[in-house]
């Protein structure tokens, strides 16, 4: 009996497709055989589009609650092919890989989720379980920044979140016309408008790296300890289990030691150019 080949994906079928914005969809995937492998919020899978290639995509949903959810933005050949998939289509899936958001560690204190752009998708997978066990946390706040109002994701769900009185939701965009009734400005600037006790807060940040660096700086300025700030990093990766060497970031492999890192572990690396 041969051991499994870690490079060979499992075949999944697209169960549903939800369009989130002009260039972003959420795919609901079901295995053609067997079960969805157990995964945790913050982890990622490698998704293969026939003949085009494979990319890492974080989970945007929860394990044990329906299809495997991945939110994909069409920016490269593989993500464009994934965004063109329709219900019934087949794709390759392998995973899960990487480190999860440290939700259990955050219990008992305040939880700050700071999302930029597509970064809301991985943080959705942290927000949902926190809301499902709301009593385990102090205050919970979601700060979400996007390019423009048309780029905002998870519209219906966000209005449900905004209507909860046990969750503070701050949404802001970089660019807007006067028709936009919400906030214009960058995410880190919203941190000072968020209610949390810095010394007992865990902050999970996901978005473009520059936005995460600025957010981490604002969190430090607000008094959140660096060991309780977590960022989800991104680098080129091919294998997802630390043998292709591509996602090295200092001593770490982002696929294996990340993508979720405590800020105190990587702050020095983040400051280095072209690492």
């Amino acid at each position: 009996m041969r051991s499994p080949d870690p490079f060979v994906p499992s075949l999944f079928r697209v169960d549903r497709v939800r369009r989130e914005s002009a260039d972003t969809v959420t795919l609901g995937l079901l295995p053609i055989q067997g079960e969805i492998p157990a995964f945790r919020s913050g982890q990622f899978f490698m998704l293969y589009a026939f003949g085009i290639g494979e990319i890492p995509v974080s989970v945007s949903g929860l394990w044990g609650q329906g299809p495997l959810l991945h939110t994909v933005r069409a920016v490269g050949p593989v993500s464009q092919a994934l965004c063109r998939l329709r219900p019934g289509d087949t794709l390759g899936v392998r995973g899960p890989y990487g480190s999860p958001w440290p939700l259990p560690q955050a219990e008992g204190g305040d939880l700050l989720l700071i999302a930029g752009g597509l970064g809301l998708a991985p943080l959705r997978s942290a927000l949902l379980p926190a809301l499902a066990e709301r009593e385990r946390y102090g205050r919970i706040a979601l700060l979400y920044g996007a390019r423009s109002p048309a780029d905002l994701l998870f519209g219906e769900e966000r209005s449900d979140w905004s209507s909860r009185d046990d969750l503070q939701v701050e949404v802001t965009v970089d660019h807007a016309s006067p028709a936009w009734r919400g906030s214009v400005g960058v995410v880190p600037a919203r941190i000072s408008h968020t209610r949390f006790a810095p010394e007992r807060t865990h902050a999970f940040v996901c978005g473009p790296e520059v936005m995460m660096r600025y957010s981490a700086a604002a969190l430090l300025g607000a008094g959140v300890p660096p060991a309780r700030i977590f960022l989800s990093l991104e680098r080129n990766m091919k294998c997802a289990f630390a043998v292709c060497g591509r996602c090295q970031f200092g001593s770490t492999f982002i696929c294996r030691d990340g993508p979720v890192f405590a800020y105190d572990r990587i702050s020095r690396l983040l400051s280095l150019r072209e690492l």
Partner: peptide, 25 residues
């Protein structure tokens, strides 16, 4: 040990394959 992968599709579109190649930092 660094490597990359390439995906190739037959001209007919009926088959595809994934190849691992040595790569370099």
């Amino acid at each position: 040990f660094c490597s990359t992968v390439e995906d190739h599709t037959a001209l007919t579109g009926e088959s595809a394959e994934r190849t691992r190649l040595w790569d370099s930092c």
